[in-house]
Design a binder for these strands. Structure first.
Length: 286
DNA sequence: TTCCAGGTCCGGC
DNA sequence: GCCGGACCTGGA
């Protein structure tokens, strides 16, 4: 049986689920299939909102967590008014109205973005699926076979060599090391949702394999820190082209980030993701 | 074959 | 603090 979530504001499922912030969603016609909170989830947009199925948890028990995951409580109108004062962001918003920032599970987000270092979206997706299949709890259905994302404890029990066998390369040693710190409670990820930006940044960056860029991805996509601003190669180029000029290429990552946070304001992270997604799709438009 | 992909870490000024 | 180089792997 399926259930439904009513959506009053804008929601673009494709742009939200397949814009490089999450890595386990695939599209099959109008349906999207993924694994979140240990459940196999299928969902599609309807005129009234979102129709979905979940397994193994019954839909009525899963509904609220899915709505929260999709970021439906974010006030997009207010966010657009805030960041839309920038003409480039405004143009991107007009091309992808309803793209939302998700509220992912922090641990999965940590590992996914450690894997993303000097890599690409497709390869990260492959790696995340391999990690789940090998170390996560299987979700037995009569259809496709998928697994929950492995817990910190499950990954803390692995080692660098096991990670290298999955093709993680130089990122291999960071996963078990970070898993141990989280499993031991040295870093309480969920608690950082309530922490001030700088405090959360320091805590996330204390995990091995996580620098300023990856930490900001984790904070933006899973810790509900909407002012977080990941500065990657491409965002640096975009900002240099638009505002910073030649100097932008020479500024350190934290300096570019702080500039962007002051310029775009409390929803800088939303501005970042719109610019990033718009840039990624620029080639497909022209 | 050569080059590059959503960086991080380490050692030297 | 800032700067340069090394680092795994897979696809074009």
């Amino acid at each position: 049986m399926s259930d439904a979530i009513r959506v009053d504001g804008l929601l673009d499922l494709k742009a939200t689920l397949q814009s490089g912030q999450a890595f386990r969603w695939s599209r099959d016609g109008e349906w999207y299939e993924g694994v979140i909170f240990g459940n196999l989830v299928r969902l599609r947009r309807t005129p009234e909102g979102v129709e979905f199925t979940s397994f193994p948890e019954p839909e009525d028990a899963f509904k609220d967590r899915l709505a929260d995951y999709l970021g439906l409580s974010d006030d997009l109108d207010a966010i657009y008014r805030s960041i839309g004062v920038d003409e480039h962001v405004k143009a991107a918003i007009e091309r992808y109205p309803g793209m939302r920032i998700l509220r992912q599970e922090p641990w999965e987000c940590v590992v996914s973005f450690i894997c993303s270092a000097w890599s690409n979206v497709r390869r990260v997706s492959t790696t995340v699926e391999s990690l789940s299949a090998k170390f996560g709890e299987p979700i037995a259905t009569n259809g496709t076979m998928r697994s929950a994302f492995p817990t910190p404890e499950q990954l803390a029990a692995t080692d660098e060599q096991a990670m290298r066998l999955l093709g993680l390369g130089f990122r291999a040693k960071y996963i078990p090391a970070s898993a141990k710190l989280v499993a031991e409670g040295r870093v309480n990820l969920l608690a950082l949702r309530e922490a001030p930006f700088e405090e959360a940044l320091d805590a996330v960056m204390s995990l091995p394999g996580i620098g300023d860029k990856v930490a900001n991805c984790i904070m933006l996509f899973s810790l509900v820190q909407r002012s977080a601003f990941p500065v990657d190669l491409w965002i640096r180029r975009v900002l240099s082209d638009m505002y910073l000029g030649e100097a932008g290429q020479k500024m350190s990552v934290p300096k570019v980030r702080v500039w962007a946070q002051e310029y775009f304001g409390p929803y800088a992270g939303y501005a970042n993701h719109y610019l990033f997604h718009d840039w990624r799709n620029a080639g497909k438009r022209s």
